[in-house]
Lab assay of single mutants.
Amino acid sequence: DLSALRVEEVQNVINAMQKILECPICLELIKEPVSTKCDHIFCKFCMLKLLNQKKGPSQCPLCKNDITKRSLQESTRFSQLVEELLKIICAFQLDTGLEYANSYNFAKKENNSPEHLKDEVSIIQSMGYRNRAKRLLQSEPENPSLQETSLSVQLSNLGTVRTLRTKQRIQPQRTSVYIELGSDSSEDTVNKATYCSVGDQELLQITPQGTRDEISLDSAKKAACEFSETDVTNTEHHQPSNNDLNTTEKRAAERHPEKYQGSSVSNLHVEPCGTNTHASSLQHENSSLLLTKDRMNVEKAEF
Rank of each mutant, 00 (worst) to 15 (best):
S139C: 07
P114G: 11
T68G: 13
L81A: 14
E249Y: 01
Q93S: 06
T163R: 09
T163N: 12
E148V: 08
C43D: 09
K69M: 00
G159Q: 15
T247R: 05
C225W: 15
M296D: 09
S152E: 02
S281V: 07
T235S: 01
L81F: 05
E74C: 03
Q154Y: 01
C46F: 15
L164S: 10
Q209A: 11
S126D: 02
E74K: 13
I41W: 12
E8R: 06
T76S: 01
K250S: 11
V232H: 06
N267F: 11
G159W: 14
R165T: 14
Q53Y: 08
L155D: 12
M127C: 12
I30G: 08
E22W: 03
N15A: 11
V10W: 03
L137G: 10
T163H: 10
T275A: 01
R162S: 12
M47A: 00
S264Y: 02
C46V: 15
F92Y: 10
E22P: 14
F106H: 03
R165N: 07
T211A: 06
S145C: 02
K118R: 04
G210L: 05
L146D: 14
C43G: 08
I30S: 11
V34E: 11
S197R: 04
P61K: 04
S3T: 08
I67D: 02
N297M: 10
H40M: 10
H116L: 01
S264P: 14
M127W: 14
D244H: 07
S216L: 03
I67T: 12
K108Q: 06
R77E: 14
K109H: 00
L289P: 02
L5A: 10
N276I: 02
N131D: 05
C23M: 15
N157W: 15
H40G: 11
S58W: 14
L151S: 11
Y195S: 14
L5H: 05
I41N: 03
K87R: 09
K259I: 12
R255D: 04
L217E: 13
N143K: 08
K108N: 13
P141N: 07
Y104R: 10
E214W: 00
I215P: 06
S3Y: 07
S186G: 02
I67H: 06
R255Y: 01
V265F: 01
L155I: 00
V265S: 06
L291E: 12
K192F: 14
R165C: 05
S79H: 04
C23G: 15
A16C: 04
E140I: 10
E285R: 00
L72Y: 13
G262R: 03
S152P: 12
Q73P: 13
N242L: 06
Q80L: 07
E226F: 00
D188W: 15
D188I: 02
E22T: 01
N157Y: 10
P24K: 09
K192P: 08
